[in-house]
């Protein structure tokens, strides 16, 4: 296969997945092309987080059908680290604390695995930190340990900026950020789409992120399927009217949220996220 024949797209087709005994995704179809921003919105329990974890291959999430390809590469056949190497980045909703391991050492190790030079990584990270108004000492501190929610999210952006992925899945990147931080983070993502052709799949509860990061398409995920697709105006409608009307119009039969507990993650408790979905 020559390079010219490879279609550049992150393509999710008919993806079904389960957590334990519970089926969560019932056939998700989505395409993200370089430089595009796609928003995935949906009520709690709709499968948004499951989608992000399945894409990255988190243990505990079992794909039961469908396919995911990244520029022609069968992602589901790869272990997690090779998915990252293939160009996928997942910014976690709840970034993991890793005692004793610095962000710099992780990015260096990733570069080494990819056969890239580790020289100049520190400078790169410092430049990235400055770009999002983040203190550069976070580059050498133990990853996410004793950091605020907003600082953890900016750590995620710092890594996204330095790992130079082709496609980024941002799982609730806006939660826990104050207005200024949200603006800085959104701007950084926007720039990556424009400068590096980053394709973005932004999973969010909340349309405020999308005021800065203008989506090409908004997908409404409910009951494990994309129920409606539209332009930026769809996000505005969801904000104003809630999900019920949009979903009813789309003819979706939406059951109650399944309330699945995600393995290895914890759901934000009350009060943790001041912008939590009011419909939840």
């Amino acid at each position: 296969m020559s390079a010219s024949t490879v279609e550049r797209v992150l393509r999710i087709e008919g993806l079904t997945a389960r957590v334990g005994e519970t089926d969560i995704l019932h056939g998700v179809d989505l395409e993200v092309r370089p430089g595009e921003v796609h928003a995935v919105m949906g009520p709690n329990g709709s499968g948004k987080s499951t989608l992000s974890h399945v894409l990255m291959g988190r243990p505990g999430y079992e794909v039961t059908g469908g396919s995911v390809t990244l520029d022609g590469v069968d992602l589901l056949a790869l272990p997690t680290w090779q998915r990252a190497r293939a160009g996928l980045f997942l910014a976690l909703q709840h970034p993991t604390e890793v005692p004793g391991v610095s962000l710099e050492s992780v990015v260096s190790e990733a570069a080494r695995a990819a056969g890239r030079s580790t020289e100049g990584i520190r400078d790169l990270l410092v430049a990235e930190a400055n770009r999002i108004g983040f203190d550069e000492r976070f580059v050498s501190r133990p990853m996410n340990v004793d950091l605020s929610g907003g600082e953890k999210k900016r750590n995620e952006m710092l890594m996204m900026g330095s790992l130079e992925p082709k496609y980024a899945v941002l799982d609730e990147i806006d939660s826990g950020l104050d207005v200024d931080a949200l603006a800085a983070v959104s701007r950084r993502v926007q720039e990556a789409t424009e400068e590096d052709g980053l394709g973005v799949l932004a999973i969010t509860h909340f349309s405020r992120l999308l005021e800065v990061l203008e989506p090409d398409q908004v997908h409404v995920l409910a009951a494990g399927r994309i129920q409606a697709v539209g332009g930026p105006e769809l996000a505005e409608r969801l904000e104003a009217e809630g999900y019920a009307g949009v979903l009813a119009e789309a003819g979706a039969s939406v059951g109650l949220p399944t309330g699945v507990s995600h393995p290895g993650t914890h759901e934000a408790g009350f009060g943790e996220d001041p912008f939590a979905d009011p419909l939840a």
């Binding site: 680290w81 133990p142 790992l163």
Partner: peptide, 25 residues
């Protein structure tokens, strides 16, 4: 497992991820 997944999701191979985690430990 969460820490290992986190490092793997950044492109660090499993063996290297465990190594980093143990050094950090």
């Amino acid at each position: 497992e969460d820490q290992r997944f986190f490092l793997e999701s950044r492109g660090v191979p499993t063996v290297a991820a465990e190594r980093l985690l143990l050094e950090g430990f």
